[in-house]
Simulated assay, not measured.
Amino acid sequence: MLAEADLTTRNLAKVTTYLADRRYREANARIRAEVLGDHRPALTIIITDIYSEAWLL
């Protein structure tokens, strides 16, 4: 979606992530670092139950 708007992850000002379980927080941090590199937008992580166990994020 960013590319379609001629934007990159550097244009992100805020990221909100919903995690199915606290056990996914390390994987989430690792993936976020891979995707965002040294860019540090405002971040909110919400750990909550979800409707389907197939939905990890």
Rank of each mutant, 00 (worst) to 15 (best):
L36G: 00
S52C: 13
D49W: 05
E4I: 05
I47M: 00
E34G: 02
I46A: 09
L7V: 03
A27V: 05
T16P: 02
R40K: 12
R30K: 10
L2N: 06
E34A: 07
D21H: 05
E34P: 00
Y24H: 06
V35N: 01
V15D: 00
T16K: 12
E34Q: 10
A13R: 10
I45K: 04
W55Y: 13
T44Q: 15
D6A: 07
A29V: 02
E4H: 12
T9F: 14
R25G: 04
L43C: 05
K14A: 15
L19A: 03
T9W: 10
W55V: 15
V15A: 13
R22H: 04
T17K: 06
T44G: 07
I45Y: 01
W55P: 02
V35K: 06
R23Y: 03
R25H: 05
A42Q: 13
A5S: 08
N28Y: 11
A27C: 05
L43W: 14
L57N: 09
D21A: 03
T48P: 01
G37A: 02
D38K: 10
S52T: 13
T9Q: 09
L56N: 04
E34Y: 02
A3D: 12
N28A: 15
E26F: 01
A54E: 15
E53I: 09
A27H: 05
D38E: 12
R25Q: 08
E53Y: 13
T9R: 08
T16H: 07
L12E: 10
L36Q: 00
A20T: 04
K14H: 11
R32W: 02
R22M: 04
R22G: 01
N28F: 08
T16I: 11
I45A: 01
A20Q: 09
A20H: 07
Y24A: 03
M1T: 11
A29C: 00
D38S: 09
Y51M: 13
D6W: 05
D38N: 10
L12M: 12
K14P: 03
R10D: 15
V35R: 05
E4Y: 11
I31W: 08
G37L: 03
E34N: 04
E53Q: 14
T8V: 02
L57S: 10
H39K: 05
